[in-house]
Design a protein around this nucleic acid. Structure first.
Lengths: 361, 361
DNA sequence: CTGAAAGCGCTTACAG
DNA sequence: CTGAAAGCGCTTACAG
């Protein structure tokens, strides 16, 4: 039987509207009619071809081609009680830090036949919806949360939900909760940073922190203090400069550094954006990096390499974080009661040495 | 009637599993039973409260609270033949240029009760799916495409689809097609850039272009050539330097500029990333911007302001682009045959003057 | 290996 | 203003 593309359109038009040339999407029914089998058989052929006979498979395949059949996902989702999609929750969509993580999540999800839904904490809040509704109303089967700063009552609702096992935190997490999570080696990264500066001869090292209350801020700050003390270095209170991961905070931190009587010769910033803002502001005040002060960041965002000077940083593999998060979450969605599910993954970081840090003169 | 949160759980448990303390999401049926009305009435009360009586409204509201009812979107989507979601297609998820646009799209969509699905061209391709399937299989009601570089056969499939009206291009577009689109004033922005450099006294102006084949690259390049000629300036062929919007291409372009005998005193780059790469590479070769050459970009990404030197650029309002795209698309989804639908929006740009450009010495 | 039938949870003419 | 009933397009025990 020879079938041109015209047959498809002719077929559809005839089936649904007699002579009118209006097309309508074919359904399983249409395929079944053409293949002369039941809809059950078509469904099986499509989702589990091994259980049907070779000849049935051929006829169904042919009928699918003739009718141009595409499965209706809304129908399948209703019947299987699965949305086949995952919600990724960001604190802020406009923050480029997350784009590579999204790429990793999306890659793994689409490979597994899941779609990726995106929302930001602020927007969900503003729309008056509850986060847990995404799970409760069958819009998403699970959730990857990239925001450790959720409101405590939102967190409580999520924890008490029967869906709690389908929620996974990535990058950030919330202490005292039992959600699954993926994160990087924040402590090890921080230690590597401090030791890198120490090895360059620096003995007065400052730290520009993330925002107060942020779990990464505290983890990195605590690790910083610990390591500096372990190395027997002096740490004056004003060498812990409060920031918030942003470029603007980096600028302010630079002003704080400039104002110090006894200036540290090296600064470890809790993010690359902080480090870039810090360096930018210094250069406006005629200070030069690394000549006057060594500065490094955390994350190794794409731009770090192109920055002037190229930025020394602690590299997080954001693609891997995303892929791991998706993989772990889908495993939980598929087998929520499997006792062997991985519950927390801690991914390696690496020190990337560039020109923004140098040996103490 | 006093109702504590415990009633909710008790209710659910009793209804579905007798004495067992297992919760199950309530359905319209459950609400109807509690409110002692039909499911039709519950449905109406929820979606169109004006048509039911005051007392019914109260009883249903009460029953919703008691049962903890959440609508099942898969069921509603199947019944209404609407996915209540929109697919946003990016060329590349890891590109931070798009994050603010996504923020704008998402804001408007969530306000209108739609979810945002995200995919990248490369991934859809890799997964063996067809783009049009997202529309055909009821996963999405429409599509915002941020990639003007789709394969011609993909474009043809989309154009010939009955769903073509539910596809909208943003930022980029494809010449010769009739898809709706949102874009910025690329020509005006380019003209403003050239005139800015001209007004600073520059007479030898180079242009680093985007990638060959890209519609923005050609639009901006053509506008550049036109304006330069209109101003009566010399334009040597080697002053049109081929790039591709990336940092790396900016570095290469800088090397090309350095190698010229007769170096232009100003360079208009087709993107901020190009300009940043250009400046970074120059500084590695001991050239200083704007002293040795004025450099400017296009887009005004967040980092432009923090760059060293702060970058002069043509500002696109990416939030507005996103919001406009979402608004136009949803209008089309809701009334596909309305003859008065806006078909193309061209949004204003503005010149942002910073320190990377200066008067010719 | 295959089919008849039930049902996922909604919405919406239709009738009253 | 309200209800009974049909049906959106699938999947999946169950029976053969």
């Amino acid at each position: 039987m020879f079938l041109s593309i015209n047959n498809v359109i002719d077929y559809k038009a005839r089936t649904e509207f007699g002579d009118q040339t209006v097309t309508k999407t074919s359904t399983l029914q249409d395929v079944a009619r053409v293949a002369k089998v039941s809809t059950a058989t078509v469904s099986r052929t499509l989702s589990n071809p091994d259980v049907v006979s070779e000849s049935t498979r051929r006829r169904v395949a042919e009928a699918v081609k003739v009718t141009g059949y595409r499965i209706n996902r809304a129908a399948r989702n209703l019947r299987t009680r699965r949305a086949h999609s995952v919600l990724v929750l960001l604190p802020d969509l406009a923050n480029p830090f997350f784009s590579t993580i999204l790429e990793g999540i999306s890659r793994n999800l689409s490979q597994q036949g899941y779609s990726m839904l995106i929302a930001s904490t602020a927007q969900v809040h503003a729309s008056g919806e509850r986060l847990v509704d995404y799970l409760d109303d069958a819009r998403a089967d699970g959730m990857i949360v990239l925001d450790g700063g959720l409101d405590p009552d939102v967190v409580e609702t999520l924890e008490n939900s029967p869906q709690a096992k389908r929620i996974l935190f990535a990058c950030e997490w919330i202490d005292g909760t039992s959600f699954a999570s993926v994160r990087c080696q924040n402590r090890q990264g921080t230690r590597a940073a401090v030791n890198h500066l120490f090895d360059l001869g620096h003995r007065k090292i400052a730290h520009v922190t993330g925002p107060v209350g942020n779990v990464l801020m505290h983890t990195r700050k605590d690790a910083f203090v610990e390591e500096v003390q372990k190395l027997g270095l002096t740490l004056r209170p004003e060498w812990l400069i409060a920031g918030d991961f942003s470029l603007a905070a980096g600028c302010l931190a630079a002003q704080a550094w400039i104002a110090l009587d006894d200036r540290p010769t090296a600064v470890f910033c809790a993010s690359d954006q902080l480090a870039m803002g810090f360096i930018a502001e210094l250069s406006r005040h005629e200070f030069s990096v690394p000549k006057d002060v060594s500065v490094m960041g955390f994350d190794d965002i794409d731009l770090a390499e192109q920055f002037i000077p190229p930025l020394t940083s602690v590299r997080q593999d954001r693609l891997l974080i995303g892929e791991t998060a998706a993989k772990m979450l889908i495993a939980r969605i598929k087998a929520p009661d499997d006792g062997h599910l991985e519950h927390a993954a801690v991914l390696p970081v690496s020190l990337v040495t560039r020109e923004s840090t140098a040996a103490l003169q």
